[in-house]
Design a protein around this nucleic acid. Structure first.
Length: 521
RNA sequence: GGCCCGUUCGUCUAAGGGUUAGGACACCACCCUUUCACGGUGGUGAUACGAGUUCGAAUCUCGUACGGGCUACCA
């Protein structure tokens, strides 16, 4: 489709208030793809000053999982993607939980039956299975309940009106199925993929209303999108094959001219095909936004949050997985994303998730983040790891000093433990080969000097060390590594004199003393 | 099997008929750094294949291959 035609098509929707919805089914943790769908919905809504709605699609009672809905909202909160309307945020188009809207769906299904666009079907699950096995061949491994087979089944198309009435009167369970027309080409324009076509003869008669009176996704999504005045409907690519059903429903029920604009997002793939939570444990990276414990099995699936991602990094990595602004810019804040986002630049092909790149985004954001935003998270983490963090001022200095070497939040623990705790042992192996009595003498004098130093800061401690080194005719460079290891315990960390300044005179002297003891042992 | 979507360095991607096919992650080398990082410089590395349209194709068309999704009274 040409750009021009596309622009003209979009025009019809421009006068409409932008209203988008994220419509998750509360069946477990939210994975990468789900959060990205939320994000793109949010970005689109905010970009056009529209409303971002969260609607819970819980029409399958057998799949109800306690805690899943709360988890979704916790994720949104953590990410800073706050809905304008939802179960938790209220709004004029509630209820926002489909199970609570149950009564509103039947009338639409019945209307379709009356108008000949749908029919009652009395086939039991066993009969359906019987039909499938009867018609299953190598050429057709999954026979569909469609125009070729519906007149062989038990439904209001094959039964007389009297029989249908009697069955219903007797309370025989039934579903309502859409009667898909034959030989019709169903076309729609996807905002990402352009024109997509389907041959209606190949589409099956999907169940609209289940025997328990609940709608299926197909009916509910159309009815609710209409009732909630949704202007743009975004979802994952896995929904593309059922788009013709939804388009037909829109045509029969509410008119194509009122149908939202569709966009189907590409899938996020794991290293080998579709991303699953199994990939997480297999390759050692998170798949869910936050920790999720399956209430049935008690199985814990680790989340990005607990792995040490900060929301800014997580959002950024997700946004760039299938979208870019056309420039070479890669680091975006949420506000910048809102500013730059456009649906047309969302890719149509699936993207493999790359954990290394994901970590890079987080690292960039940790470096970019101010001490203030990192402080509470780091403090919590350090205390969880058993360090006593009583001096906030010190904590701030430490964070500023080590953040550039932290990719994930827990790295702060490794990178700053020695600021809060005297090393219980040190890497003597790295010192010993070049250790000698001259150096020992040097450090003894360093202790004496440090005791008398009037001003305790990085500059003074460095000068003192250099002067004594010169007096002892030892190259300062020869002393840096031992000094570092005495203070830190190993060969890592920020500048040694910065460390000395922060841990203070007493502690510095203590660690040198300890170091000499370790080396003498 | 059928239907639908897709295919540019290993990965995320730029390039909308004319570019030495650009960037980022990762990797390698060097520089910086009296540790580890940060940072800097450079390097390896891609248009799936085949036809066609065109003076000219990563770009448009068709076919093939490959990958993915769907094919439930699940979403």
């Amino acid at each position: 489709m040409t750009l021009l035609a596309y622009a003209v098509l979009s025009l019809s929707n421009m006068d409409k208030k932008v209203r988008v919805r994220f419509a998750p089914s509360p069946t477990g943790g939210l994975h990468l793809g789900g959060v990205r769908t939320v994000l793109y919905n949010y970005l689109f809504a905010k970009k056009y000053n529209g409303d971002f709605i969260v609607r819970i699609e819980d029409t399958d009672q057998s799949r109800f999982v306690p805690g899943a809905e709360e988890y979704i909202f916790d994720t949104l909160k953590w990410c800073g993607l706050i809905p304008d309307e939802s179960v938790q945020h209220g709004g004029d188009y509630g209820p926002y939980r489909q199970s609570e809207r149950k009564e509103s769906y039947r009338q639409y299904a019945e209307k379709l039956v009356k108008e000949g666009f749908a029919y009652y079907a009395f086939d039991t699950p066993e009969e359906l299975e019987k039909m499938r096995s009867a018609y299953r061949t190598e050429q057709n491994p999954s026979p569909q309940y469609d125009h070729t087979l519906r007149d062989k089944m038990m439904n209001s198309l094959t039964l007389s009106e009297n029989e249908v009435e009697r069955f219903i009167g007797e309370g025989m369970p039934y579903v309502i199925r859409i009667k898909i027309p034959t030989q019709e080409t169903i076309v729609f324009t996807d905002m990402i993929r352009g024109e997509v076509q389907f041959d209606s003869s190949l589409v099956d008669d999907k169940v609209l209303l289940k025997a328990d009176g609940m709608p299926t996704y197909h009916l509910a999504v159309v009815v609710d999108d209409y009732l909630m005045k949704i202007s743009h409907a975004f979802r994952g690519e896995e929904w593309l094959p059922s788009a013709p059903v939804h388009i037909l429903l829109w045509k029969y029920l509410f008119g194509l001219e009122n149908m939202p604009q569709w966009a189907h997002f590409p899938l996020i793939l794991g290293p080998n095909g579709k991303l699953s939570k199994r990939d997480g444990s297999k390759y050692g990276f998170p798949v869910f936004s936050m920790n999720w414990t399956d209430p049935k099995t008690n199985e814990l699936t680790e989340g990005f949050k607990e792995k040490g991602f900060i929301p800014e990094g997580f959002i950024n990595l997700l946004a760039l997985l299938g979208w870019n602004d056309g420039t070479e810019k890669e680091i975006f804040s949420l506000n910048e994303l809102v500013e730059s986002f456009s649906m047309e630049r969302v890719h149509s092909s699936g993207a493999h998730f790359d954990y290394e790149k994901a970590k890079w985004f987080n690292h960039e954001w940790i470096k970019k983040s101010g001490v203030g935003t990192l402080k509470s998270g780091v403090k919590e983490l350090l205390e969880k790891d058993g360090f006593i963090v009583s001096d906030d001022n010190k904590l701030e200095k430490v964070i500023a000093l080590v953040k550039e070497r932290c990719t994930l939040l827990p790295d702060f623990s490794d990178q700053s433990s020695f600021f809060f705790k005297t090393p219980a042992q040190i890497d003597t192996v790295s010192i010993l080969p070049k250790w000698n009595t001259e150096k020992q003498q040097f450090f003894r004098e360093l202790i004496r000097t440090y005791k008398l130093t009037t001003i305790w800061n990085a500059h003074e401690t460095e000068n003192a060390l250099k002067e004594i080194a010169a007096a002892h005719q030892i190259k300062a460079g020869e002393l840096m590594l031992p000094f570092r290891i005495m203070l830190v315990g190993g060969k890592f960390g920020p500048g040694v004199f910065d460390i000395a300044e922060i841990i203070g005179r007493e502690e510095t002297i203590l660690r040198i003393t300890n170091g000499l003891t370790f080396l003498a042992a």
